[in-house]
């Protein structure tokens, strides 16, 4: 069972490296934001697999926090790309 967790962590890490390739190379900014979003999600699954391997339940609090931060970052990036600012005072 532990071997299975290690192999899963290895494959997920390889896919993480693939996402990093897209983050560095991506021709436009939107490509990089897509890659960052996917990296946040992959990081969540890496944390879950690590908590399975180390056999502790204290990492599980990180998962919720990291998913919330990833979504807020992606939404802020999307609004910044579309409007050019994140906080607009006079929203009509």
């Amino acid at each position: 069972m532990m071997m299975f967790y290690w192999v899963s962590l290895f494959i997920v890490s390889i896919s993480f490296a693939g996402l990093l390739f897209r983050l560095v190379k991506g021709p436009t900014v939107a490509d990089r934001v897509v890659a960052l979003d996917a990296i946040g999600v992959t990081l969540v699954s890496i944390v879950a697999l690590l908590s399975l391997i180390i056999e502790t339940e204290f990492f599980l609090e990180v998962i919720l926090l990291m998913s919330i931060l990833s979504f807020i970052g992606t939404a802020a990036f999307a609004k910044f790309l579309e409007r050019g600012e994140i906080f607009d005072r006079d929203s009509r």
Binding site: V12, I14, S15, G18, R22, A38
Partner: peptide
């Protein structure tokens, strides 16, 4: 997850 990286 691997399919996601492949697609990206």
């Amino acid at each position: 997850s691997a399919v996601t990286a492949l697609g990206l």
